[in-house]
Design a protein around this nucleic acid. Structure first.
Lengths: 221, 221
DNA sequence: CGTTTAATTGAAAGCAGTCAAACTATGTGG
DNA sequence: CCACATAGTTTGACTGCTTTCAATTAAACG
């Protein structure tokens, strides 16, 4: 099964959009790569820098973030196993945002030029990558709506649902819900709220029985 | 000059990202198309529907929008001359958002299959389209930051600056600023605020001399 | 155990929303 | 040319969601 291979989830993630031929699948799996297991908060990519390699999440979670001039952080997107840290840097020199690990994760690093060669010479891969980019854009649009037109309760509920649906699509969700690997502060940074208000809002959702909190997860090492 | 041709701005817009060969440029200009001049508020595309043609803005402005379940509108992105209404629908059946005209505009409609054939068979065009998509995603990320971590004053100022920069990149800006073809209500829908609060915030910016309001623009027919 | 990180809670302040009304510009029809 | 209708702007008073500040509690780690 491809899921045993470190890049198996990348293949599966690409195939969620469009089927790949056996040859193409092999070409992806044959990408040269090195695997590293990294701690939470590790930067996979830094805003303003030029990456020389392309990271693929094998296990664990990460997020894209930007910092405003005033120093406030905004989490822009959450990345799941099989997600590629950055396709845009195949074509742009400088990254416009940072990517940081949410949990201790395994990351497969593929040399930039190897990834570039594959994408440019394999039409199936190029198409799948393009579709993946379009889907990310669609999620971003929904996120804009979420932050622009919904209150705290709705924003948080929406994020929790998005997370669940995406886990399910990847086949990673446990039967009775999932564990969100984020602190309340990170949750706040993701939906544009304060950690204090996130706390109060979660309390409300729990009181209504809409969510159940389990053991708090911190220091995910 | 390509700008005389209806699709000239599309070519220029594609070339902002990557140079095109003469042949490719001709291939774009040779796309079959019909031009229509349409009134403000006209829908170029509706959420949930499957488009059969691909609209290109020749002149005027448009915006992407979504409506929440509660009926609130969020403007997700603003489109300028040369922008293609929807590349994502070359690959997805159903549109996840609507596109509506901001001003009376000329729109060139290219049959979906002609556009698809060009993108799939011309690597230069495919690359340019992909880059354009990546840039749109980058603008979306900035928009998420804007709405998540900035107050009314900063959000509005940011949108006004973004608009100006993009006009400048297209060579459409007049020497002494530009006219924003949006009502205060639309501005509010774009940055996640009420029209009332937009009004008060604009008043503040004017009082500080940061912006100058000219003749109000309404009924853009 | 002491330290650190995260969650929780309270009180006060402020930014932005809501509601409602007045005002201004533009267009229409008699 | 005026009365009227329409669309957008402006303003005020009030409410309320969210932030800020500060302190406490709980859990995990060395």
């Amino acid at each position: 099964m491809p899921t045993q291979h470190p890049l198996g989830l990348l293949v599966r993630s690409l195939e969620l959009q469009t089927p790949l031929s056996g040859d193409t699948r092999d070409a992806v799996l044959d990408l040269p790569h090195t695997i590293q297991t990294l701690d939470p908060s590790t930067y996979i990519q830094r805003e303003g820098e030029q990456p020389t390699r392309c990271g693929v999440l094998v296990s664990g979670f990460a997020y894209r973030q930007k910092i405003t001039g005033a120093g406030a952080r905004q989490i822009i997107a959450i990345q799941m196993p099989g997600d590629t840290v950055d396709f845009q840097n195949l074509f742009f020199d400088i990254s416009d945002h940072s990517v940081q690990l949410l949990t201790r994760s395994e990351v497969a690093f593929v040399p930039q030029d190897a990834m570039q060669t594959l994408v440019c010479n394999n039409a199936e891969v190029a198409q799948a990558v393009f579709l993946k980019t379009l889907i990310e854009a669609s999620i971003l649009r929904e996120r804009v709506v979420n932050m622009g037109r919904r209150n705290a309760r709705e924003r948080i509920a929406h994020l929790l649902c998005e997370f669940g649906f995406r886990l399910e699509a990847l086949g990673l969700q446990k039967q009775s819900g999932y564990e969100l690997p984020m602190t309340q502060e990170q949750l706040g940074d993701a939906v544009g709220l304060t950690s204090v208000h996130v706390n109060r809002t979660l309390k409300g959702l729990k009181a209504e029985g809409l969510i159940v909190s389990r053991v708090r997860i911190c220091n995910l090492r």
